[in-house]
Nucleic acid binder design. Structure first.
Lengths: 246, 246
DNA sequence: CGCGGGGTTGAAAGGCCTCAAAACGTGTGG
DNA sequence: CCACACGTTTTGAGGCCTTTCAACCCCGCG
C-alpha cells in the first residue's frame, strides 16, 4: 500500500558544474557518473554493477509493482514516468530528460512505470550497491536530498496545476516548462520538442487527448504557438506566460 | 520562479522508535528533538536557536514568498500547507500532524504557506543553523532524504488523485488517508478527526466547497460514513476502500 | 437579537469528457 | 510510385460532472 518511487532532475537552483552538458557515464561499463550533479565518485570500485544501456522508443524500463533492483540516470533521450490505477487510468508523474535520475525513493518496489519516449541511453546502477554507496558518501546523500527536495517542490507545483488550473493554463504551463527544461540541456529556443503523444500529455495534465488536441489548436489559433512535427514553436512567449504564469 | 518548500511526515515505512508517540521537543528551549525519526541529536549545543512555541488556530506560521529563516516540527495540533496562485486560487499541498517536519526543502524563500488548523505547538529551528547541523550529522541527512523521498511518493500519489479521480473517489481516499495518519499517531479508530473546513478539504482535493459538502452527504446517504462534529465516523470501511482503492 | 462564518441544498451553466468520424502521417507491399 | 493499413491527431456533437450562483440553515458571539 505504500510505494516509493520518483524521478529527479538536476536541482533547479543553478549548479554551475552541470549547467552546460550533463555527461554521466562516459564509458561503458561506467567508471564515472554525474549523479544529481555529484561527480566526485569513482564507480569503478563498485565493479560492474553499473551498466550503460540503450533501449528503443516505447520500451519499458521499469514496471510499476516490480522489484526495484536498480536506479538509473538518463544519458540521452526522454523517459516517461507514470502511475496507473487498477482500472487503467494513468497519471504521468514526471518526464525524465538527459541528466535526470530515476529511483530517488530507493524503494523495494517500483511505484511507477518508466517507458522510453524516444530511443534512450541510460545508466543502470544496482540499487543495493548504490545504497551502500550512500553510506560511504555523505556528500552524495546531501546531493540526493537536495534533488529530492527539488523534485518535491516541482511535484507540489504540479499539484496546483492539476487541482486548480484550466485546460488552457495547464497546457501553457506545460509548454513553458518543457521549454525551460530543454533550455537547461541544450540552449534556449522558440522551438520546443515534445517527444510525447497527446495521450501522454493528457495523462500528465489530467486531461483527455481530445481536450489536449483542442487546446493545442486553440493556442495555435491565438497565434501563441505554431504546431510543428514532434513539437511546437512558441510565437508569443509573453502571451503564453500570461496564461501559464503563477 | 523557483521556490522550495514542503512538509514531511514520518517516513511511511515503519520506524519502530516513533510508531507510538512522536514526542519531539520535550523541553523548552528544546534540548532534544526527534527530527524525522532521528533522535540522536543533542540540540543544546546549538544554543537557543530552537524554540518551542504555541500558536492559536487560524494563525499563520509561514507565509508563501517570505524569507525562510526557520524550519519546524509539529508537536501537537494540525497545520495546513498550501500554495496560492496570484488570483487567489489555492491548492493544499499537505497537512502536517504531530511529528511532522515542515521545511524539508531548506529553500531561501517559502514556496508555501503554513496555517494552524487547531492550536498548534511546534518547534522552531533556525534554518541556517539547521543547515550547519546537516554538515555534522550525515545520519540526519539520510533521515531527511528518506523523509523527503517518502513525501515525494505521497505527492505523486496525490497527483493521480487530483488528475484522474472523481469527487467520490477523492473524498473517500482522503478520509481513508486521514484515518491511517491518525492511526499512526493515536490508535486506529472508526472516528476520523477532520480539523479542516470544507474549503480546506476542497482545496486539498481540487474541488469546490459545495462539491465537497454534496459528496459528504452522498457518502453519508450510502451509509459509508456518518458525519459528526469536526470529523466523520467510518461505518463501512470496505465500502469506502472500494471507492478509494487503487 | 442580529450578525458572521461555516455548512447544506437547489437550479442552472459551463468546461471537460465521451462517442464518433474524418484527416493526417508513416510504413508496407503491390 | 501508388494503394492501403494502421496509429495518431483533429474536429464535431452531445452529455455529464463539477462549478457557479443563490438561498437557507445552524451555531457561536457581541
Amino acid at each position: 500500500m505504500l510505494h516509493h518511487y520518483e524521478i529527479s532532475r538536476h536541482s533547479h537552483h543553478a549548479i554551475p558544474a552541470m549547467r552546460s552538458a550533463p555527461s554521466p557515464c562516459e564509458t561503458c561499463p561506467v567508471r564515472k557518473a554525474s549523479i544529481c550533479g555529484y561527480d566526485g565518485l569513482d564507480l569503478s570500485r563498485f565493479g560492474d554493477m553499473t551498466k550503460r544501456l540503450t533501449k528503443p522508443a516505447k520500451s519499458t524500463i521499469v514496471d510499476q509493482g516490480n522489484q526495484a533492483d536498480a536506479v538509473f540516470t538518463v544519458v540521452s533521450g526522454a523517459v516517461l514516468l507514470s502511475k496507473s490505477l487498477p482500472d487503467g487510468r494513468r497519471q504521468v508523474v514526471g518526464i525524465a530528460l538527459p541528466g535526470d535520475f530515476i529511483g530517488l525513493s530507493m524503494a523495494e518496489v517500483h511505484g511507477f512505470s518508466a517507458t522510453a519516449l524516444t530511443q534512450v541511453e541510460y545508466c543502470r546502477i544496482d540499487r543495493a550497491r548504490f545504497s551502500e554507496m550512500l553510506d560511504e558518501e555523505p556528500r552524495l546523500v546531501r546531493r540526493l536530498y537536495a534533488t529530492s527536495a527539488s523534485e518535491l517542490t516541482f511535484a507540489q507545483e504540479h499539484m496546483i496545476l492539476l487541482g486548480r488550473r484550466s485546460a488552457d493554463e495547464k497546457l501553457a504551463t506545460f509548454l513553458l516548462n518543457m521549454r525551460e527544461r530543454w533550455a537547461r540541456i541544450r540552449s534556449a529556443s522558440a522551438r520546443v520538442d515534445l517527444p510525447l503523444t497527446r495521450q501522454d500529455i493528457g495523462d500528465y495534465l489530467g486531461l483527455t487527448i481530445e481536450t489536449v488536441s483542442r487546446t493545442f489548436s486553440k493556442l495555435a489559433k491565438q497565434k501563441l504557438i505554431a504546431i510543428i512535427p514532434d513539437g511546437i514553436r512558441i510565437l508569443d512567449l509573453a502571451g503564453l506566460a500570461a496564461l501559464g504564469s503563477g
